[in-house]
Design a binder for these strands. Structure first.
Lengths: 244, 244
DNA sequence: CGGTTGTTTGAACTGATTCAATCTGTGTGG
DNA sequence: CCACACAGATTGAATCAGTTCAAACAACCG
């Protein structure tokens, strides 16, 4: 699917409920409209990916850039022992930038997602024309580094309950849920929470039941209802400033 | 301490045995000599830091850049429960770049280290003059991201033995130990290994004793003697390509 | 309806922690 | 050179958080 040039792109119209326009998202993250439009003019492919089915296997050449228009993507790494670790998440408006030695992680969707795929080489031409773009990319990388650090602390020294509580808080914040909002959709299966927090799904199930028994959250269908954000944050040692 | 301009800088002469010249290290990492020299011409301070004494507390404004000339630096994050997690290491020739929201980690040395400190604002002037520098910085960030991922897998799904074995392999590689070399100095205390791998020092002690009992390594004074690199790598699931 | 995917529960097990004590090496000052 | 202090390493015993295995249950979907 190629870009439709001139006039209002069909991509500007909302496709899903939380679908993100590429230009809007880039501008909102601090990029100048000129550069955002230059990026949007690059050849691009829109794809829709189903959850839990890897669409980019580990070890493949990293010549593509992915931009999440709606849903959530995950970088994952399978290990010989059969378990897998989810390394990072990308929410709507965020992107996956390729790295130099072909990355060892694969990509899969957490929920059905719409993704824009572009060529690294194409983007590099925009970087050449607009050096500020490099700073923008670096800033995004540093934000993800801060999140990475937080996840390492999570898996390294926090207990199972704190890990899950932290993930819930981070997910709500990164999904753009207002702090006043008590209810938000839980995008994860318990297995996925386990893959993120380095546990088994059995234990995640018990932790969630515990959190519910303690009255911190309620689970209703696919939603999480948070009765006491402050307490959930305390349990998860979540301080959101690392997210900007 | 200010830069001595013109002629051979005193910094070009080796100060410690493994001391690294700033220009050499930058050029070797792929930067052009012109840019490396431009960076070297910036105001800089040389400091020597003692191990295990934080010299940069968490949460302080990140307006400084650190370049490791010798030794090893660690980013660490203390947690309310009294434990701490080491988030990343920087070996000789590597640097710590500041991030936008003031970083939540502190810096400490693993062993006595020599560090060059520069101002972020100064470096940015070089970036303005040489846009390729931005790509260089991004590439370094991506390499550290790959290492971060590896550490997350370590803490998330590998068992205590694999974690320690992996750290030993990574340390040897990043220290520049030739694969043929069986002996290398262990820079860590057992507490530091624990802080990196998310364990207690007691358990690290038992794991090291196990590795020795299994004949994989020997410990002699401050050195680790690796009897069988291939086997140690297998145990630690260490595949070094993520290090470039 | 049957098949699939995800959740929940129980019982047994185990890897790692916690607490406490001892041992070893190194440096320091008398 | 010895006495002492201090940091790190080592060991044991008790405990516990989280895993493993197995089985049942619920929800969803074509």
């Amino acid at each position: 699917m190629r870009k439709n040039l001139g006039g209002t792109s069909w991509r500007s119209r909302s496709v899903g409920q939380d679908s993100v326009d590429l230009v809007d998202a880039l501008v909102q993250s601090g990029l100048s409209p000129a550069i955002a439009n230059a990026i949007d003019d690059l050849p691009q492919r829109n794809i829709e990916v189903d959850p839990r089915r890897p669409f980019r296997e580990p070890g493949l050449a990293g010549d593509e850039i992915f931009f999440v228009r709606s849903g959530i993507l995950a970088k994952f790494k399978p290990e010989p022992n059969g378990r897998r670790q989810i390394l990072a998440l990308r929410f709507a408006g965020e992107g996956v930038w390729p790295s130099e030695p072909p990355p060892r992680y694969g990509l899969q969707a957490i929920v059905k997602s719409q993704v824009v795929v572009m060529q690294k080489a194409d983007l590099e031409t925009v970087v050449d024309d607009h050096p500020e773009l490099a700073a923008f990319i670096l800033k995004a990388a540093q934000r993800h580094e801060a999140i990475n650090h937080e996840w390492l602390v999570n898996c390294g020294i926090r207990n199972a309950t704190a890990r899950v509580a932290h993930l819930l808080c981070e997910t709500a914040t990164r999904s753009g849920i207002a702090p006043s909002e008590k209810r938000f959709p839980n995008p994860f299966t318990q297995q996925q929470i386990a893959d993120i927090t380095g546990q088994t799904s059995i234990n995640v199930n018990r932790v969630l039941a515990d959190l519910e028994r303690q009255g911190l959250i309620r689970r209703e269908a696919r939603d999480i209802v948070v009765n006491d954000w402050a307490e959930l944050r305390r349990v998860g040692e979540f301080r959101p400033n690392y997210l900007l």
